[in-house]
Amino acid sequence: MKRKSHERKGDDAVRYVAVIFGICVAILICGRAIVVLPQDAPEVVTLDTLSKRYEPVTFPHMLHVDVIESCEECHHAPSGEISACSECHTTPLDPENRSKLGLKGAYHLQCVGCHQDSQSGPTRCADCHQRKDVKSIGTRKLEAR
């Protein structure tokens, strides 16, 4: 996965144009209004709301727009609107409503679950996150003791 992030820059433009073209055709054919056009969608999203041991994740959003057929597969809001995960999934998870995942669980189960099911994409922690220097945190605490 890391390999891709380096290689991607070259064929990004082609891919980008292809995606826009595809979507324009889709709009013409279906004639329905799409609330969020994928070209309006961010290229890269930095997920940094929860990061104690790991650096924020740089999520290659466009790459996923490319491979996943429908936005709703991830943006599964009941209203049908495309909204950020954090708009529904709270931190920490809501004890009154445990059937709805917290934000951290939503991120990880979405990413890792899909990567495992499709047997593509990273499933190990350090494949997505850069580790923070946790050992130093531990040592500090040991000294404090």
């Binding site: 104690k52 041991r53 998870l93 004890p95 445990r98 951290k104 669980g105 990880h108 189960l109």
Partner: peptide, 11 residues
Amino acid sequence: EACPQEALVFG
């Protein structure tokens, strides 16, 4: 708190 998958739920 650390579990990324919410495999552990406290309550």
